[in-house]
Design a protein around this nucleic acid. Structure first.
Length: 265
DNA sequence: TACCAGGCAACTT
DNA sequence: AAGTTGCATGGT
């Protein structure tokens, strides 16, 4: 499958901190999503995906006009202008809600490298084998049924630290139907449901809302974004309230530009 | 050696 | 309701 590039840059997406299952490979990336493992690369002005599954179009959020969003923010202030220019190829991926819940519980007070390693461990030990590239095996993210067989120690041995008990309790107490049924809830109800989970607070809930349910109104504030709000906007107190108002109506997407620019510029 | 990383739960005031 | 503290672990 071949897709013409429009606000679509693999490197930017890979480094924007939303996908933890992308691996650099040859001139492109191997990535795992929707129970499929594929090789993807750029060629001239196109993206080449070695799969014909239509769900990749949805995964990359190709129906959304990102240039329109960039234009909206680029006109707002100078910092946003630079950030949207720097990350103009970012897209907010439509990832699996269950995977995002697990992933962002692990992310709390953690760093991206170790989050990635933990998820790799969980998948290779407990997920289903998908395929191999150059002799390296790749595994699916475990299903909730596969997770239910783990002990707290099993989680701990994948490097998730003290979050082991949150993950154990999560997979023992929810059903996958819950996770998908929540898609029918409005933003506030969905956020409330997420906040009831142990290990999920304001920031993690906003990440799950954005990356797992594609609710773009929320604005996740982490340590990087805190610095951006302070240094670029002079806002130190009530950052959440400021950001949710100032960066609407696509706060989550604006946040991705700010995160990517603030972290890598 | 302290401090930090896509913060949170539990506890205190 | 608001503020404080401990937390697994690897990197710097």
């Amino acid at each position: 499958m071949k897709i013409v590039k429009r606000n679509f840059d693999l490197k930017q997406i890979a480094e924007s901190g939303q996908a933890f299952r992308w691996h650099t490979f040859k001139e492109g990336y191997i990535l795992i999503a929707h129970h499929e493992c594929i090789y993807i690369r750029e060629e001239d002005d196109s993206i080449i995906i070695d799969s014909d599954s239509e769900h990749w179009l949805n995964y990359f959020d190709l129906n959304r006009d990102y240039q329109k969003i960039i234009d909206h923010y680029a006109n707002k202030d100078d910092y946003l202008k630079k950030a949207t220019d720097f990350g103009s190829g970012i897209r907010v991926l439509r990832q699996d809600p269950f995977e995002m819940i697990i992933t962002f519980i692990i992310s709390a007070n953690n760093n991206i490298k170790r989050i990635t390693e933990s998820i790799k461990q969980l998948s290779s030990r407990y997920g289903s084998y998908l395929r191999s590239f150059d002799g390296v095996d790749y595994y699916d993210f475990p299903t909730i049924e596969q997770f239910k067989k783990l002990t707290i120690e099993d989680f701990r041995n994948c490097g998730v630290g003290y979050r082991d008990k949150y993950l154990y309790e999560l997979v023992q107490t929810i059903s996958i139907e819950d996770v998908y049924d929540w898609q029918a809830l409005d933003d506030l109800e969905l956020k409330a449901a997420l906040l009831r989970l142990k290990g999920v607070g304001e920031k993690v809930a906003n990440c799950i809302l954005l990356f797992g349910y594609h609710r773009v109104e929320g604005f996740p504030i982490d340590t990087w974004i805190k610095k951006v709000l302070l240094e670029a906007y002079g806002v130190e107190n009530n950052q959440q309230a400021f950001a949710e108002d100032y960066f609407k109506p696509y706060g989550g997407i604006a946040q991705q530009y700010l995160f990517y620019y603030g972290r890598l510029k």
